[in-house]
């Protein structure tokens, strides 16, 4: 009896590290998402990058007129729009990633049986986690590119290093999407999912997106500095304002931990849900 292509492909991975967990086909899930996206989800992406642009015009130019210049370093002053633009980019990367990795994932997990269908094939749980998170990342890239394309001609983000804001936004999206999917895969009810929205808005308002943390008392600053969005904002802000410092590595390390933790526990949870 001849062996089917599907079997031959699966047997090629026999004995490799991570067989049963990762079949090296996360791209099949990306392809699925891309096809679904072409059939009508594009409007969400459009709103995803117009939102920070609206914030930028309202706060950057409106409130900015009242605020004047902001000091970001010794002898380094920037306009209010320049101060908040990177933070808005970081926040939109977070919002897009969380949106994709929470509500969308929750429906596929609980109602559509999408992951059950995927894991009945020769795919493994890490393929599913990486594919879904990878999609959130691609959307993060699209948001960031759109936003940067609008903001750069206005002179708000300057210089070649300003372009580094785009990969930075992708790292932020990756981190948040990993944690978002981790949370969602353990969530049981709608109520638990509502907590995501409850957490997101204050995270944006108080993480130093709209004003420097120096106005906070020391204890509050320490709390904010422990939260992920602050680190995200710092990465984009420092890169786009040309403040290159060792602390940048610390912020990136923070996201690296988020990514690894998110992927590890999401994979474990998917296995427990669908393969135990």
């Amino acid at each position: 009896m001849s062996v089917s292509d599907a079997v031959r492909i699966a047997e090629n991975l026999k004995g490799r590290i991570g067989e049963g967990t990762y079949s090296r086909r996360a791209r099949a899930i990306l392809e699925h998402r891309r096809i679904a996206f072409k059939q009508g989800h594009w409007i969400v992406v459009f709103t995803g990058f117009t939102e920070p642009v609206l914030y930028l015009f309202s706060f950057g130019y409106g409130v900015g007129k009242l605020v004047g210049k902001i000091q970001v370093g010794p002898n380094h002053w920037v306009t209010y729009a320049q101060f908040i633009a990177p933070a808005l980019l970081a926040t939109s990367a977070m919002n897009g990633a969380i949106y994709d990795s929470t509500w969308n994932v929750f429906f596929r997990l609980k109602w559509d049986g999408t992951y059950k269908a995927m894991l009945a094939t020769s795919l493994g749980p890490l393929d599913v986690a990486l594919g879904e998170i990878g999609w959130a990342l691609i959307r993060g890239l699209i948001y960031a590119t759109g936003f940067t394309a609008i903001v750069m001609p206005l002179g708000i983000i300057k210089g070649w290093y300003g372009l580094l804001a785009i990969p930075a936004a992708v790292i932020i999206a990756f981190g948040f999407a990993s944690i978002g999917m981790l949370y969602t895969s353990y969530a049981k009810s709608f109520q638990q999912m509502d907590w995501v929205n409850i957490v997101m808005l204050p995270l944006f308002l108080f993480s130093g997106a709209l004003y420097p943390l120096s106005i906070y008392p020391a204890w509050l600053r320490m709390i904010i500095e422990a939260l992920p969005l602050w680190h995200g904002i710092q990465i984009v802000r420092e890169l786009s304002l040309g403040i290159i410092h060792w602390s940048l590595l610390g912020h990136i390390a923070y996201f690296f931990v988020m990514i690894v933790t998110g992927l590890f526990f999401t994979t474990r949870r998917l296995r427990a849900l669908f393969m135990r």
């Binding site: 292509d5 599907a6 492909i9 699966a10 079949s23 086909r25 099949a28 899930i29 392809e31 699925h32 096809i35 059939q39 269908a117 995927m118 094939t121 020769s122 795919l123």
Partner: peptide
């Protein structure tokens, strides 16, 4: 497309 994406899950 349902048939297509499922085939891709197997790497076909």
């Amino acid at each position: 497309d349902n048939l297509y994406v499922y085939g891709r899950y197997f790497g076909l």
